[in-house]
Nucleic acid binder design. Structure first.
Lengths: 209, 209
DNA sequence: TAGATTGTTAATCGATTAACAATC
DNA sequence: TAGATTGTTAATCGATTAACAATC
């Protein structure tokens, strides 16, 4: 199943969409689906769907199609959702708090155990059962807890410093960065940037008359 | 300058990144830059940078390169940042509140004037000078105010209904959708989906051993 | 069995990179 | 002028789509 070396990023980024649509189909009690039908509702060609899925294995059956529940499970496994992930949030401002409250992540297996901030007003607070620690304690925390992903919700200026400090402990696998800047990490630490402003600017572009 | 018909989405999505990096260069008092230098710091090839920019015009000068301030201004104009945009936020929960507080958007010209929610506990509140109205008043509000973009921060279940209702007034140009579902709108209304969970799932995929 | 639909190879399309003449 | 670097055309690369034999 681990053919992931050669799978294109474009295909990988489609996987969560498959996962969402397959979940919807399950909720609507659809048992089986063909690549043609799935393509129609997702806006893909049947060909692309078969190509995408066959990057990871033959999950269908000729003359029948795909079993929805089974395929959903397989895509989940491909995405790594057969395990859960420990998460910390760095930056307990509005966005950090919003993410900590986002039950969707928890339901999918991303458990936030701690938040960190430099602001003394926030340190010590508890937000929906999650304690806010002083960011200066981050190294100690990471050394004594298995954390997979850090959500970085700081401002632009602090993001790289934060990334460097948490990368140094080498106990973390990935950074999910919401600061409006590109951060760099040592080889082996995955960075996923969510540049909200970039997304919004493409909206501005597209509504120009 | 309006060659935008044929410009690829891939190129358009790189524009905000140019805009960010050029701003950084201005802040660091860099006056001119070549496509080679800019490519090195942005992780693009010089060739791609020249191709991207020449979708919109020849902003450089042979033998010299690009004037940073001028190019920054041009990219801003291409993105449509020479005007400002009126914004409403639908869904005044954690994420909606976080977005309303995000000064970065305002600085770039996106002004939030009102929030809407169905929750009576939130309706009537004021969050950083922005009033929360009852969502049932949305049609009236849109008819009496020029709103360009609606940020949809509802749950998955309500997102399509919300999108349909605000699309019906036809006074809005775009929807920036944060609900974890794909929404459809009438032709002519731009939709930009920010699927946070999709982004997070690609992280899970990429940290699989 | 016949019909349907997959898995996979081949063809096409589009985006990125390379090359180079134009020119500051 | 000579050197540098653009704007743009041509070549390459990769991703998407089409086609079809395999097979349930």
């Amino acid at each position: 199943m681990e053919k992931k070396d050669k799978v294109s990023m474009a295909a990988i980024r489609r996987l969560p969409k498959y996962y969402r649509y397959l979940k919807d189909l399950i909720d609507r009690d659809v048992e089986k689906i063909s690549s043609k039908e799935l393509g129609d509702i997702m806006g893909f060609t049947a060909s692309q769907i078969r190509q995408d899925l066959n990057n990871f294995g033959g999950f269908g059956q000729q003359g029948y199609g795909y079993n929805v529940k089974e395929l959903y499970g397989e895509v989940g496994k491909i995405l790594g959702l057969d395990k859960s992930y420990e998460v910390v949030i760095i930056g307990a401002g509005n966005l950090g708090q919003a993410l900590s409250n986002y039950t969707n992540f928890e339901k999918t297996g991303f458990n936030c155990k701690a938040m960190f901030d430099v602001n003394p007003r926030l340190v010590g607070m508890t937000i929906r059962d999650i304690k806010v620690y002083d960011f200066d304690d981050i190294e100690g925390y990471l050394e004594t807890h298995d954390v997979d992903i850090a959500f970085v919700c700081t401002n632009k200026e602090s993001a790289q410093d934060v990334a460097s400090r948490i990368s140094n402990t080498c106990k973390i696998s990935a950074i999910w960065n919401f600061a409006p800047t590109d951060i760099v990490t040592p080889e082996g630490i995955v960075v996923e940037n969510v540049h909200l402003i970039d997304s919004l600017l493409t909206v501005a572009y597209r509504i120009k008359d």
